[in-house]
Design a protein around this nucleic acid. Structure first.
Lengths: 135, 135, 135, 135
DNA sequence: GTGGTCTAGACCACC
DNA sequence: GTGGTCTAGACCACA
């Protein structure tokens, strides 16, 4: 499994799992209709508690990214199920506002900020290529 | 007082206080060498415990935004004290990465994302104008 | 537990805890990746409030000595995380200056002063040996 | 007056005053039997409260550095009055111990530490020369 | 079980 | 008056 979690991180483990699965989707290493490992399996692989993985999956389900079947386990939904909608834009704005505020306060211009996000966009582009070559 | 906090928010109260003070700095409603209200005063105004305000102030102090005086209370530092440095850029990147990942996953392009941040930049620009007219 | 605090001391309790943990590290009685007792546990052992221990741990975290895990509690960082850097040397100099000034004023030479610090160095050497024999 | 205090410093103002007077003694810019400015005068010069200067003077008196006369005000004592004694050595050791502990913990050797104190000794030597030329 | 947050109320040092 | 420290007791998120 391509997931790696950092126990020392400030970020909650279940959040790290959720974030990496989302990154897996955009990289293309997991696709629509793919199954995620079972809760039990993933928990064992990562050496974390069942509840933790469960919480991550439930969060992803609630956010529309996956559907949890009794038999097939967790399955990636088609992209239509979680297209950015108005609610998401509001949530996104709430997340970004304090981050942008701090960057402004620390003297970063809009251009500096976009430079920072472009580095991240490029990382994701590389990930995508890599996954393509491997898959 | 220009601070308003939301007791029901997911965001910790002390974080809300911190964030709004940062917004106050970029809006220009508080400036270099201005004093913030005393912890007791602000706590009373907001209807929260003094320790909560104290924690917010200590966080701001640790981040370089303010200096805490024994007599004058908390004072805004000159901007040089908290200019974006390498450490901050790393922190910023860590904050932005999962946010950008989710937006990509939900089908937002880089252009859509920049549109979202521009709305926030415009809000801050309006705040700045407003504060200028009031001050 | 190897920690002893003095409630009557001028030094704040949380500072005493911090200092003794640092001494524990240099003595070798706690090592890289060792866990410290939980805040509740240590607070109970020392007969102080859990917030006081919490403050000490947070200070140590901020100084780079420990990492605070959600599950495992506080863990000693590898020494690389808190090697003396320029900032520390400045802080050290600020601490030492008035101490050296007073010693000079009271007629102590540099040699007298080094004699005084050597007594301390020898104490730490003994502590280290002791810990080695016990561990 | 050669005293300069920093209101932003972590160090209490009365402690800064006390420290600088001690530095003045070792530099030779104030000598045995010299009078310090009156409490009122110094407070006015520094722009601080009377009580603050008073506290500094009382501390210096208690430590043996000065005598407070009704008429002549505060007068520097002869050096014999405050020679390092056993009590002072104990106090010094208590001050130095946590400082040395931290430096050790951060990987500084005894040699590194002595290098750091020598920088300070040299600063004081320069101060002394300077004061000699001016006086 | 762990730490994180918040409240309430106290005393002290500093100014 | 200011912030700094400490206590006591509560609830929540995370694992």
């Amino acid at each position: 499994m391509w997931l790696t979690i950092n126990l020392n991180s400030e970020t909650a483990i279940y959040t790290q799992i959720r974030n990496q699965i989302i990154e897996g989707i955009i990289a293309g290493s997991i696709k629509e209709n793919d199954s995620l490992p079972s809760v039990r399996q993933l928990a064992a692989d990562l050496g974390v508690n069942l509840h933790t993985v469960n919480k991550a999956y439930n969060l992803l389900k609630q956010e529309g990214f996956i559907t949890i079947h009794r038999q097939k386990g967790a399955v990636i939904n088609p992209a239509e199920n979680y297209r950015a909608d108005q609610d998401y834009l509001v949530k996104l704005s709430k997340e970004l506002r304090p981050v942008i505020a701090e960057s402004l306060c620390r003297g970063m211009t809009r251009t500096d900020f976009i430079e920072a996000i472009d580095i991240i966009y490029n990382e994701f582009k590389s990930l995508k290529k890599e996954a393509k070559n491997n898959g």
